[in-house]
Every structure is written in C-alpha cells, then in structure tokens.
Amino acid sequence: MSTRRSFISKGSTIAGVLSLSSTAIIALAPARAWALDLESLTTLQGHTLLVLSRHIFPHDTLDSAVYALVVKDLDTLASDPKVATLLIEGIRRLNEVAGGHWLDISPERQLQIVESIAGGEFFEKVRSTAVISLYNNELAFAHFGYGGSSFERGGYLNRGFDDLTWLPSPPDEASPRRSNR
C-alpha cells in the first residue's frame, strides 16, 4: 500500500544549519549541519509543515532544527495512509489558497491563510502533534531553560532549587532551612 508513496518520497530529506545564535542547542549537537530523512513525505511537504509549525507556535529564536522534530513526528504518523492523505490534502489546500506555493508568499500572507484554516482537521493534526513534539525534547529543554530529568543528578537540593536572589529570602518560620545538610 505504501509502495507508491515510498517510491515518490524516496530520498526525501529536509536539512539545515544551526543558527550561530542557537548556542544552547549547538552545545548539545555533534555538528552544526542537521538533516532529517523522511519516509512518507516529500522534501517540499516536509518544508511546508516545518514552516506551518513555526506559524502555529512561533518562537523567533528557536532553531528550525527543533521544528524539524515536529516534521519527523508528522512523517512517522503519515505511515498511516489516512494521516498521509490528511496532510497532503491540507498542504495542497494551502497552496491552492496561496495561488501557487504557500511557501513562496510573504510570512504575513502565510499567516493569514493559516488563520483561515485554524480549527480544521489538518490544522488540528499539526497543532496537536507540535504542542508535544516541539517542547518535549532535549533541544527545546536547552533553548527554553528547562532541566528535564533530574533524579540521576540528585535533584536540585544542591543544584539551585532555592538560588533565586532577586527577592528577599523568606524567614525560617515560613521556609525552614534544609535540615539534611
């Protein structure tokens, strides 16, 4: 069933180079260049979904490498032919409304078209995937400043659970000193 689609998308890849300003992410990455092989979607479809994800959850300084993780999860979901059809038809509709390639029009015009499809099934599939994929990964943790799993590092008792200094420390009766060190 997927033979034809696999054939069409064989060798599909989306790729990029980490922005020099993405310092927290560069620290985690083996190299600045990144690439994502797609199984079900074409390169153009992958790029379209990446830009769409950025319109749905816009973080100006968040590297496209992180948005690519949304495309990766959508590509995996698209191994289900129903999802593939939903995504491909949704992209086709974006292009149709744009009167050409939606990717080629101005970001402002792109956003207007996204607003016009908000709440629809295609939009909701991308949004509900992105709302988790975009934020539930180590690159996003590094970018936004979230600590992730902490047990293996002993929690935060000695790693800044109470290191806030821009407000006065509460008195002992409200917040006793830690009793085990």
């Binding site: 935060y156 800044g160 659970f161 109470d162 290191d163 806030l164 407000l167 006065p168 420390s169 509460p170 009766e173 409200a174 917040s175 006793p176 000193r177 830690r178 009793s179």
Partner: peptide
C-alpha cells in the same frame, strides 16, 4: 525548605497583605 517558585509566591503574598504563607 521553600524553592524559587515559593520565594516569588511568598514575597507577592506579603506585599498583597496575606499574613500567613509558608511551605
């Protein structure tokens, strides 16, 4: 012992006039 989230909560509570706020 209170964490950073508590420190913000506590200081805000005191400034608003809540007398009793603890961990």
């Amino acid at each position: 012992p209170g964490n950073n989230n508590f420190k913000v909560f506590y200081n805000g509570a005191k400034r608003v006039g809540y007398r009793d706020c603890h961990t």
